[in-house]
Write a protein that binds this DNA or RNA. Structure first.
Lengths: 189, 189
DNA sequence: TCCGGTTTTGAATGATCGGTCAAATAACAT
DNA sequence: ATGTTATTTGACCGATCATTCAAAACCGGA
């Protein structure tokens, strides 16, 4: 039997994800990735192919682990409406252990216009966020909502969320943040 | 008397602006800028200092010429409320002669977190957009709005606009676009 | 016609980029 | 011990990056 891998893929992807999240795809060099992952160049290429493939894996890791976990955690033990509000509050407040904003939205700006495969991953992720909002809305018992209204409102919430993510990345103190939060509340009211 | 400059600064900035707008700061090389401006390397450095300074000039050109012109044109000959709606329609539809999205918002994502000077320019530009919406709202005669309500609604519109700009850059056909447009209408109604 | 001052030109520079590879290393089977 | 196989290692590669600079080109005045 040969020598076994001495690293955990998930740990490496987690480190790469944070680097890409904070500095963008083009702003992160292979030298940076060597540093943050602890692996050396050759192992990185042997295990993940090249920079773009490593990014794809990191983006999928973000989407499947971080983003899903984020939404699941917020939903747990909350009324549907509160889950939506808590989602926006959490984004506005920001997790100090994580870079600001959202890797999917960052990548939508930087890469989606020039890379179809990445654009598809992002589109899929966006659709799942919209579905999250739609599910929450469908389970609200405060008043009846037609399927059309649910779909429409979910899309608006998604748009507001993206706007909020951009604002918080550009300037964590932006006064627009509070206005968006109360708009979300009144949209659900 | 010495040899005079054989280029127009505004023309060069316009070309550089489009390149940065389409491909981002890091995605645009000096070689690209040489190509799109028609100037050669040395003249570019002699006239504008370096890449970052050229970008700053291009960003300010975008803000002072393109963005201001865009809003002014939409406002002209329109009721205040129609001007706001027309702004969102124009963003959603997109000008085929220009790159999608908005250079200010793109730069907010790519550079603002790591460059304070750029962050300030962006903040200022964002504030002027908010003021544009606030002015339109203040001049609406359909119903009375308190200053607080105007400020709040202007910020929400700004958030929706940013969301729309991201959506249109990532995917021009996104179904969220229509939902955002009708949300704007109902927000003004 | 020559000169002083300015711009243009494009070759050259060193740094950094993403990517490669042969050699060293480690675990197992014989 | 020895051989086999997979992984690790870091030096190395050509390409490209932003930037510089000396020389050529150009103009107006003397």
């Amino acid at each position: 039997m040969p020598w076994e891998k001495c690293y955990e893929e998930a740990v490496v992807l987690e480190a790469a994800m944070r680097a890409f999240w904070e500095k963008g795809y083009q702003g992160t060099s292979m030298a940076d990735l060597v540093e943050v992952t602890g692996l050396n160049r050759g192992s990185l290429y042997a295990g993940f192919g090249n920079k773009r493939e490593l990014f794809l894996r990191a983006l999928q890791h973000y989407d499947q682990s971080y983003r899903v976990g984020f939404l699941t955690r917020l939903r747990k033990d909350r009324e549907p409406k509160d889950a939506i509000i808590a989602t926006f509050d959490a984004i506005a407040q920001g997790d100090t252990t994580m870079p600001g904003g959202c890797l999917v939205v960052n990548s939508a700006m930087e890469l989606a216009p020039h890379d179809d495969e990445i654009a598809r991953i992002i589109e899929n992720s966006m659709a799942e966020v919209e579905a999250f909002f739609a599910n929450c809305l469908a389970e609200c018992e405060d008043r009846v909502r037609s399927p059309a209204e649910i779909s429409e409102t979910a899309k608006v919430l998604q748009g507001l969320m993206v706007g909020l993510l951009v604002m918080t990345r550009a300037n964590r103190e932006s006064p627009s943040i509070g206005a968006i939060l109360s708009q979300v509340r009144s949209l659900l009211g």
